[in-house]
């Protein structure tokens, strides 16, 4: 007699759910950007969204982050949120250290331990006392990303978070993303780079205002998702990652 089958453990509830998100721009000539986007992100999931320029990727992330109101739909978020916007949003006159202190106050973070660790990990500690206006675009983007991660949020919305990074920092970012996934964080990344796509657990393509499940890049016979080109990560032409 075979032993009774134990029920499969139910999957953990998603940390982020979007249902029927619709958004149009313009009053006279309305341009429908999102037409009912529905998806979830579970704990420990690293989800990618790809799409052509103007497909509405950043609009979707702004809506998820609360920065933009959708015309229809709902977002449910279970936990704290970190949002790294596509544009670097910093104060030119304040230093790196002052930004971290200011956002620690906004997040009500008890200390700067994690922020300091992120600064070290992204290797820009030597610029702590430098005003943002004096930093390179890549270093500004490191701070832009650090601000999104410094309160160790459960859900991360990252809009092309590695713009302007050199290759080493780009790889460090993906190490960081892997750590976040391991620690059960829900990570949503907007990407436009073909060779990123193998890194995601789930990949969606935003097309005609709708989110389509792109085939997993880990299965080689999937025409919907371009395969990672062999040797892409060591290609000299790919050493600077820019939008």
């Amino acid at each position: 007699m075979s032993p009774p089958l134990s029920p499969l453990p139910s999957p953990p509830p998603p940390l982020l759910s979007a249902e029927g998100i619709a958004k149009a721009y313009g009053h006279v000539r309305r341009r429908q950007v999102l037409r009912g986007v529905t998806f979830t992100v579970a704990p420990g999931a690293l989800v990618g969204i790809v799409g052509e320029n103007g497909a509405g990727k950043s609009t979707l992330l702004k809506i998820l982050a609360g920065a933009l109101r959708p015309d229809e739909g709902r977002v449910e978020l279970d936990g704290t949120l970190g949002y790294c916007p596509q544009d670097v949003i910093l104060n030119d006159t304040l230093t790196v250290a002052q930004h971290l202190d200011y956002f620690a106050a906004a997040y009500r973070a008890p200390n700067l331990t994690r922020a300091d660790a992120l600064v070290d990990r992204l290797a820009y500690g030597q610029y702590r006392q430098a005003p943002v206006a004096t930093l390179s675009g890549g270093t500004q983007q490191k701070l832009n990303l650090t601000i999104a991660l410094m309160h160790d949020p459960q859900v991360l919305l990252l809009d092309e978070p590695y713009q302007g990074f050199d290759w080493e920092t780009y790889l460090r970012f993906w190490d960081l993303a892997a750590d976040l996934r391991t620690r059960g964080r829900a990570v949503l990344v907007i990407s436009h780079l073909v060779f990123d796509q193998a890194r995601f657990d789930t990949l969606y393509q935003l097309r005609d205002g709708r989110l389509e499940a792109a085939a997993s890049p880990t299965t080689p016979d999937t025409p919907a998702t371009p395969a990672v080109p062999a040797g892409a990560e060591s290609s000299p032409s790919a050493r600077e990652v820019r939008s």
Binding site: G66, A67, L77, G79, T80, L81, F103, M150, H151
Partner: peptide
């Protein structure tokens, strides 16, 4: 039913 903390 949105989250209980802000976005960065």
């Amino acid at each position: 039913a949105a989250g209980n903390a802000g976005a960065g």
